[in-house]
């Protein structure tokens, strides 16, 4: 493993999460990038690539359009890759089990994100009041405070989930019956097919260029 500390992994995860809305949108938050990144840092890039591929395809239509806040697929891929590579590297069944465990946490993170955006209303009003009173510097302060709080929220979430969730995942995986483990191994090969199906469904009304309808 290149980096041992969970704290450093939580910081990297928080920075990747900030890319979803708060800063840049360079797509470092996408599963196909952040899962292999974590896999590489933990010494098992191929597990990360496979997890990233599955999550990217299955949740292909999870797009933040307008005010909609979709499930946080970055946290699915980051947590699953982290747990799988830390506790059971290169074991496909464990990677699928980690994916199963990480999905409820992604819904939880979505709620945290919604609360954060509500908290931003207060910061926005504080900035507006400042402008009215001639304190223009509040615009910059408001932006950076909001960005800092976003990263802090994500960091605390990842730190707790990576550590506590990882311990629970490790214990539960060891207690699983043999037939469940065998089923998870099959799912490693079958889930990409679900992803392909999801992609084909979402792109079925494709227009062929050069042929006018």
């Amino acid at each position: 493993m290149i980096i041992e500390s969970t704290v450093i992994f939580a910081i990297i995860a928080a920075l990747c999460s900030a890319d979803v809305t708060a800063f840049g949108q360079f797509m470092i938050c996408r599963p196909i990038f952040c899962a292999p990144l974590f896999g590489y840092l933990m010494g098992d890039i191929n597990t990360g690539l496979w997890i990233g591929m599955i999550v990217e395809m299955v949740w292909i239509n999870a797009i933040p359009l307008g005010t909609a806040v979709p499930i946080d697929i970055a946290s699915i891929s980051i947590n699953a890759t982290f747990w799988a590579c830390k506790y059971y590297p290169s074991i496909h069944e464990a990677a699928i089990c980690a994916l199963l465990f990480s999905i409820p946490f992604a819904y939880f993170y979505k709620e945290i994100d919604i609360n954060g955006r509500n908290l931003n209303i207060g910061i926005m009003r504080w900035v507006e009041k400042g402008i009215r009173e001639g304190k223009e510097h509040r615009i910059n302060t408001g932006i950076f405070v909001s960005l800092f709080l976003f990263i802090l929220r994500a960091f605390v979430f990842y730190l707790i989930v990576m550590f506590l969730g990882g311990v629970i995942f490790q214990l539960i995986y060891l207690q699983m019956p043999a037939f469940v483990i065998a089923g998870l191994k099959k799912a490693w090969y079958l889930l990409p097919i679900l992803g392909f199906g999801s992609v084909i469904y979402n792109f079925k009304n494709i227009r062929i260029p050069f042929i006018k309808r």
Partner: peptide, 10 residues
């Protein structure tokens, strides 16, 4: 690149 840093529901 910071345009959505203070994104809020209001």
């Amino acid at each position: 690149f910071f345009i959505q840093s203070l994104w809020n529901f209001e």
